[in-house]
Design a protein around this nucleic acid. Structure first.
Length: 463
RNA sequence: GGCCCCAUCGUCUAGCGGCCCAGGACGUCAGGUUUUCAUCCUGAAGAUCGAGGGUUCGAAUCCCUCUGGGGUCACCA
């Protein structure tokens, strides 16, 4: 039985787009194998906790349609799914490690650690704990006396730890390069390294699919699994999404919160489709496909190891493709929802055929179509020199009995011929007069939708 | 800096020893259609496959070295 998981920590505004990427892979792999996809909240850092973060992460995940089988608000037999609610478990296994001499109590002060680190750095050494507390006489007594302590992993200097990464092959680390990582902090909370191993084991996670920034932490996890005598999961370290300068995707250089894209008019299915293409490609080189298809053709082994740049331009193109291929009723509803029903459905419905091929994001709609809902407040061209021709246009249009795009167009066309005007000039003036803008949906059709009365009103108000 | 990961057009990628003097997509540029924009159509530029050595009859594909990029080195995840 395949069980995958993502383990976001509620220390940000929302789920990171990179985490959404790994969530997508975890979810897809679970689906493909009729397995379960779990969300576990890693809230062991009490300092960095952000209120409301967990709720937003879970909400965004749902908005993207990555529905989890088990999680803090979904239940499941391996719960609780919030690490802050599993503290006793970590305590028990921390003790077990101490008994097995795999871990030890450490009473060093922050100050000592700080000066040790400074000294090592000064000497050009890698900052590492010096095992100062490894062989204390009676540490249990000091713990019982209430002295502040942490529990550290005791990594032997001469050990060689290797593990197999499904897409990267064997990766080897040496004990001398690894630090005696803190497993249980002074506040009694575990650090990531203990919690992740204990939880993945008891939650029966079979495949640990996470970002490559965790590779260097993995040997510690391996050492813990071996010490407990537990079966290890299969590891897959996915490539990290990058900024255009190839550094790890960051807030400064990119919108990183997954919900940002939704708020700015991107469709969840388009974002997910684009994410599919980050470090993976369709066997038939297809670029646009839905999640069902992704599930059926996806293979973990085909994930690329090089870190891809997250290119918003291509994402926009893809979003535009999704909008283009959508049926117009659906697009109407999406727009209605996107603008919180601020505009009447019937009105949006009529305009959709005009703009469906012109917008790439839902948010492109309003700048293009706002003139349908209200008079232009400003005009992108000076119409004063063209008042007389606009007057003629007004009077000619006033005579039209059947207010249809075709007859409007024909009437205006005749006018340009009669007045010996260039189409491009005349229609631009009229376009600005009606819409306020130099760029708009097709003019005749727009005028038909606006209605005769409103069009004449807009023209006469300029005269 | 130590350790680890990675390396094909600007970007996402195809490629698993001969079908590749490297294919597709985004983007860019030029032309056509069009009353604006967008769409659409046609075409073009764009990668000495990071560099240098091997292995081989033959290498983008295998090996080594170097270079470059990235990650990680907390009582953060």
């Amino acid at each position: 039985m395949v069980r995958t998981r993502i383990a976001p920590s509620p220390t940000g505004e929302d789920i990171h787009i990179g985490n959404l990427h790994t969530a997508l892979i975890n979810w897809t792999f679970a689906k493909k194998n009729d397995g379960q996809f779990i969300v576990r909240i890693e809230d062991t850092d009490q300092q960095r906790l952000i209120k409301g973060s967990e709720e937003r992460i879970l909400k965004t995940l749902k908005e993207y349609g990555l529905i989890y089988d088990e999680g803090p608000d979904a239940g499941g037999s391996a719960g609780p799914y919030r690490q802050s609610e599993r503290l006793e478990t970590y305590q028990i296994y921390g003790k077990e490690l101490i008994e097995k001499k795999v871990a030890y109590y450490c009473f060093c002060s922050k100050e000592r650690l700080e000066s040790l680190r400074k000294k090592q750095q000064k000497e050009g050494l890698v900052p590492r704990y010096d095992k100062h507390c490894l062989n204390l006489k009676d540490p249990e007594k000091r713990v019982e006396d209430g002295e502040s302590y942490v529990v550290r992993l005791n990594i032997p200097e001469d050990i060689v730890i290797s593990f197999e990464d499904l897409i990267r092959g064997e990766i080897t680390f040496f004990g001398k390069d690894l630090d005696d990582q803190v497993l249980i902090k002074a506040d009694g909370f575990p650090t990531y390294h203990l919690a992740v191993v204990v939880d993945d084991h008891f939650m029966k996670v079979t495949h640990v699919i996470r970002g490559e920034d965790w590779i260097s932490g993995t040997p510690k996890h391996i050492y813990l699994y071996d010490s407990f005598g537990w079966e290890k999961p299969i590891y897959v370290h996915t490539p990290l999404l990058r900024n255009p300068d190839r550094s790890k995707l960051s807030k400064r250089k990119n919108p990183i919160w997954a919900s940002w894209y939704l708020k700015h008019g991107y469709l969840p299915e388009a974002v997910l489709n684009y994410l599919c293409l980050m470090g993976w490609s369709h066997p038939k080189q297809k670029e646009i496909f839905d999640l069902d298809e992704f599930i059926s053709v996806f293979e973990l082994k085909n994930i690329q190891t090089a870190g891809p740049i997250f290119d918003v331009v291509k994402l926009e193109w893809m979003n535009g493709e999704y909008i283009r291929r959508m049926n117009s009723g659906l697009l109407t509803n999406k727009l209605l929802e996107f603008y919180h029903e601020k505009y009447p459905k019937e009105a949006i419905e009529k305009t959709v055929p005009l703009i469906q091929e012109r917008i790439k994001k839902l948010s492109d709609y309003l700048p293009l179509c706002e003139f349908f809902f209200k008079m232009p407040e400003e005009y992108q061209a000076d119409l004063k020199p063209h008042k007389s021709i606009l007057k003629k246009a007004h009077d000619t249009l006033a005579k039209i009995t059947s207010w249809k795009a075709e007859s409007i167009g024909q009437t205006l066309q005749n006018l340009t011929v009669k007045e010996k005007l260039r189409n491009a000039d005349f229609f631009m003036w009229l376009r600005v007069a009606i819409t306020g803008k130099k760029i708009s949906p097709p003019l005749n059709e727009s005028m038909e939708i606006l209605g005769k009365k409103e069009c004449l009103h807009r023209l006469s108000s300029l005269l």
